[in-house]
């Protein structure tokens, strides 16, 4: 537990975040800080990590746990390096999201919610990600992958496997230039 500490870079970022709110309202930084923490500490929020965040904000650990457990983007258990999140809602579903999910389950030999034995992939199904006009779609890290077909899914999985990198929401997106 004692060795949990943000890198200097993350610490500077977090300090900046805390200043966005009026005096006495620093708890507002909790959710943005949890994103930074999840990205830095292996893609999930271990209890020690949440305790560390509580100490930085000077709040009770339970205030962090209750928030982390409310929001679907926070992982409270270890996950694979690439969390593949396939939208399963209305428009994606109308255009074949179930096929995409079933295909990934077979390809990765995991059920939705599971992680591959090599720790590379976690497969999740999620609710509408605001990409319904380009359905079916999935999100991996910061990036949206849209108008999916099964061959496209295969290619992407191979690419992620080849990169071997952990993907986080906070990454610079690969699909969009900013």
């Amino acid at each position: 537990m004692n060795n949990i500490r943000f890198s200097d870079e993350s610490l500077a970022l977090v300090q900046k975040m805390i200043q966005r709110y009026p005096e006495g309202r620093q708890k507002s930084a909790l959710i943005p800080m949890l994103h930074v923490a999840q990205a830095e500490f292996d893609g999930w929020l271990a209890p020690e990590v949440m305790d560390y965040i509580a100490s930085l904000l000077n709040i009770q650990p339970v205030e962090v746990y209750e928030v982390a457990s409310f929001y679907s983007m926070f992982n409270l258990k270890p996950v694979g390096k690439c969390v593949i999140e396939v939208c399963r809602t209305s428009s994606c579903w109308l255009l074949g999201a179930e096929d995409v999910i079933r295909h990934l389950e077979n390809k990765l030999s995991v059920k939705v919610g599971g992680t591959t034995t090599d720790g590379m992939f976690t497969l999740k199904s999620v609710e509408c990600l605001g990409s319904c006009g380009t359905a079916p779609m999935m999100q991996v890290g910061a990036d949206y992958y849209e108008n999916l077909t099964l061959p496209k899914v295969d290619q992407l999985v191979e690419k992620f496997r080849h990169d071997g990198k952990r993907k986080c929401y906070t990454d610079q997106p690969e699909n969009v230039t900013i």
Partner: peptide
């Protein structure tokens, strides 16, 4: 940024979320 919860689109839930 939020963290995944449809209900945070409801304006008072959004304010709660913004308060951490």
């Amino acid at each position: 940024v939020g963290a995944g919860a449809y209900i945070c689109g409801e304006e008072t839930a959004l304010l709660e979320s913004l308060e951490g």
